[in-house]
Design a protein around this nucleic acid. Structure first.
Lengths: 211, 211
DNA sequence: ACCTGAACACCGTTCAAGT
DNA sequence: ACCTGAACACCGTTCAAGT
């Protein structure tokens, strides 16, 4: 099988283009991926891609689902639920981190096959712990909110960490150091304890109702 | 003072361009705003804008801060803290809702003057309730994560609500109706109770330590 | 000081034509 | 069936020139 780095001159299939797009995005970032650039990378005309993907959006959607699959964020089942949840959230965070350009796609694309797999794994686990189906769905959605928000803010802070801390410290008449420490952490680790605490309360309530 | 709808043929200042950009974005959406279109809207050359804003990004950054100011999301002080927090979060959610195109900006721009005002209001309120400064900052950041994530997912679901519910219901062998109900709610209302529960636990712990 | 017009180096996508 | 080349209708931004 030819790789994208040594493309054969024969015709390529959908999977080949998908893989090449994945590689190229890893190398140059998603916001720099253009149809013309991908074509050049494969030594092919830009229009060749359109035989396999109806539009750039369709291509990106496919890459995103592939990305989720390769991130492989579902933790081992033997972990206690709160660690399992924390690890899953951190895994998603890390996968998306630095790839802010994915975020508008998350907000505009349908749920893919591989994204669905993660969803059901999460819901299964929390139902196993005693949550009702609706509550498990709510918990899953909340975790996704936290991850997306954390990735978004992380990008802000990486570009202007010092500025934000400085401004806030001046305003509140406190030292900038604790703020810098806060902003220096992975953003996901800030909301996660609060989220787990909320989940614990809900699980306790569910246990009371059931038991 | 001339409005953007009846532009004078005299020179315009920075505030005028800013206001016009704000109006135009409200009308056509942020992703359709181009320098050429704004120029056409003002019956001016595209390059005129560059006298007042160094780049399109600088213009958008200014519009975003203006947007935050006009959203006016800080609730009345007499509300109990949990309602105050919930109202603030819902206000931000509603301001951003449907304007997904703002989200990549939130992730790439420095904090503006008006954004800072909301930040300090939130931190003040939670410190008043007994949280330490660092914890109040953490709570604020977590709320922002939730809002950004909720807005992002809301956009997804509005485009493919039925599809998501259907897929998930089939997978879990349950009726699609409760999932539809979940996805039909404002996404912010899903994570907010969990967040408030977590905050309550933290406030109780803080009270115990202090008292 | 502020604005214009033309130009540069890009985009995504269409369409007719090639093999 | 799959790919190419040229073209269309756009972008943000530069630069020299105008008033």
């Amino acid at each position: 099988m030819p790789t994208a780095s040594t493309p054969s001159k024969k015709y390529h299939n959908r999977a080949f283009y998908l893989n090449a797009a994945f590689e190229l995005i890893r190398d140059i970032g998603i916001d720099k991926l253009t149809m013309r650039r991908l074509a050049e990378y494969l030594d092919v005309s830009a229009m060749a891609i359109y035989k396999h993907f109806g539009s750039k959006d369709e291509l990106l959607k496919a890459v995103l689902d592939e990305f989720i699959a390769r991130a492989d964020v579902v933790p081992p089942a033997q972990l206690p639920w709160h660690e399992w949840v924390a690890q899953l959230a951190r895994g998603m965070f890390r996968a998306l981190q630095g790839e802010t350009a994915w975020l508008p796609l998350l907000g505009s694309f349908d749920i893919g096959e591989n994204a669905l797999r993660v969803t059901t794994a999460f819901i299964d686990r929390l139902m196993q712990e005693g949550l009702a189906f609706e509550q498990a769905v709510a918990a899953y959605l909340t975790m996704i909110h936290l991850v997306i928000g954390a990735v978004t803010l992380q990008a802000t802070f990486e570009k202007s960490m010092a500025a934000v801390a400085q401004t806030l410290a001046q305003e509140k008449q406190v030292s900038a150091r604790p703020i810098l420490a806060m902003v220096d952490r992975d953003q996901i680790d800030i909301g996660l304890p609060l989220f787990i605490a909320g989940l614990k309360a809900r699980l306790a309530a569910a246990g009371r109702t059931q038991g």
